[in-house]
């Protein structure tokens, strides 16, 4: 008998006298928190991420300013459909991990923002690029439109497509592994700069 059939056989034997019926209650929703975008900004900042709010017309200037602010100016990689003509930015050409390591920054859009938890979700569509590009560079500039912000986790899960790879990002890379003291900056981008467009 294959390991598969053996395991499934043992599972069925273990549950022979057990009723499979369990009613799963709908999980409760958080109460109305008012201004979702303000809550989102507050919660993202709580993770020690940087948030800049601006209008659609100001985005280019804001992002350029962030990149120029890096010492020596930043070499930035961008996804194919960022929809922002950033001077000097290089469009991802299926770079290897080692090549991506040569970039200082990445600029992407996002799929969803979650106000309650201050989370940004990328579903890696062409305006966000492959997972690797938003991971290897040390600065991630993420453009979130105010209309993309939802209240809580269940709202995001409803909107997201599980067939796509998803990356949920809540602040910069961090660890609590040393004396359970949170410090920011391990393997992922050490700086997360969220540009909130409204």
């Amino acid at each position: 008998m294959s390991a598969r059939d053996e395991i499934l056989g043992r599972v069925r034997a273990a549950l022979a006298d057990v009723s499979p019926a369990v009613s799963v209650p709908t999980p409760p929703r958080a109460p109305d928190r008012g201004d979702l975008v303000a809550l989102f900004v507050e919660r993202v900042e709580d993770y020690r991420a940087v948030v800049t709010r601006c209008s659609a017309e100001e985005v280019l200037a804001v992002v350029t300013g962030v990149l120029d602010g890096l010492p020596g100016g930043a070499r930035a990689v961008v996804p194919p459909d960022l929809g922002l003509d950033l001077p000097g930015a290089v469009v991802d050409a299926q770079f290897t991990a080692a090549e991506l390591d040569g970039f200082d920054a990445v600029v992407t859009r996002a799929a969803v923002g979650i106000a309650e938890t201050g989370t940004i979700v990328l579903d890696h569509q062409p305006d966000q690029g492959r997972r690797a590009i938003s991971l290897v560079p040390d600065l991630h500039v993420c453009l979130v439109d105010a209309s993309q912000v939802v209240a809580d986790v269940p709202d995001a899960i409803e909107l997201l497509d599980p067939a796509r790879p998803l990356t949920w990002i809540s602040g910069p890379s961090a660890t609590s592994d040393i004396e359970l003291d949170r410090v920011e900056g391990v393997h992922g981008p050490r700086t997360l700069h969220v540009v909130l467009i409204s």
Binding site: R43, D46, Y47, Q94, I114, E116, T117, G118, T119, H124, R130, R131, A132, P162, A163, R164, P165, L166, T167, W168, I169, S170, G171, P172, S173, A174, S176, G188
Partner: peptide
Amino acid sequence: PRSSTGERMNPYTSTWSGVTPGDG
């Protein structure tokens, strides 16, 4: 995340379903 690290959400969660051509 709230029970584990005591955060509203952990910094990173990855989800994937099999193979995504050209990504990962």
